[in-house]
């Protein structure tokens, strides 16, 4: 994966496959503490302690179409390469929270990438899932909630090409202005 937005898309796809109806994606950049923290929390089926333990093993997967599961090991590797770590907090029947931390200024810390495309892709695939996105950077914040968008479009499905295009443009604009505060 080239950047963190692709890892986020991948982990959120796990949430969807685990039957989540609510996904909360948070990125927090704190230059004072020199920490970048990613959090993907869902209310999907969750995992028991044994599965959590195996989740970082590339040769463990619950799928049947292939015998390797690389999503979480990739993110773990990306975090460790940037002096960070990956944590999985999961409870069967409750949900899963994946937390990855990185040293913000580390030379090997992957760039955040295109979050507008990641959020738009997630909504296009599963317009009925509630997605809350928040990206904070030293006190400035970008946020988006599909619940709020659904209220605005009042009954129109979120996966119409026009609505998705609006969401992409809105996030591109907001992410761009967040960058200007850097």
């Amino acid at each position: 994966m080239e950047d963190l937005s692709l890892h986020i898309l991948d982990i959120a796809e796990n949430s969807i496959n685990a039957g989540a109806t609510n996904i909360e994606i948070t990125i927090d950049e704190d230059s004072k503490q020199d920490v970048l923290k990613l959090e993907i929390a869902d209310n999907g089926s969750g995992m028991d302690a044994t599965s959590v333990e195996k989740a970082l093993d590339p040769f463990y997967t619950t799928r049947t179409t292939r015998r390797v599961g690389l999503g979480l090991p990739f993110l773990d590797e990306a975090a460790r390469a940037a002096n960070g770590r990956l944590e999985i907090d999961s409870h069967l029947g409750v949900g899963t929270k994946v937390i990855a931390t990185f040293q913000l200024s580390h030379i090997d810390r992957k760039p955040i990438g295109n979050m507008a495309d990641t959020i738009t892709t997630l909504i296009a695939g599963r317009p009925e899932v509630d997605i809350t996105y928040r990206h904070g950077r030293d006190g400035h914040t970008v946020s988006l909630s599909t619940k709020e968008i659904r209220r605005q479009v009042d009954g129109v499905s979120l996966n119409s090409a026009e609505t998705l295009s609006f969401i992409r443009q809105y996030l591109e604009q907001e992410e761009h202005s967040l960058e200007q505060h850097g």
Partner: peptide
């Protein structure tokens, strides 16, 4: 653009 603009489309 703001989220409120969605009402227009």
């Amino acid at each position: 653009i703001t989220i409120d603009d969605l009402a227009k489309i």
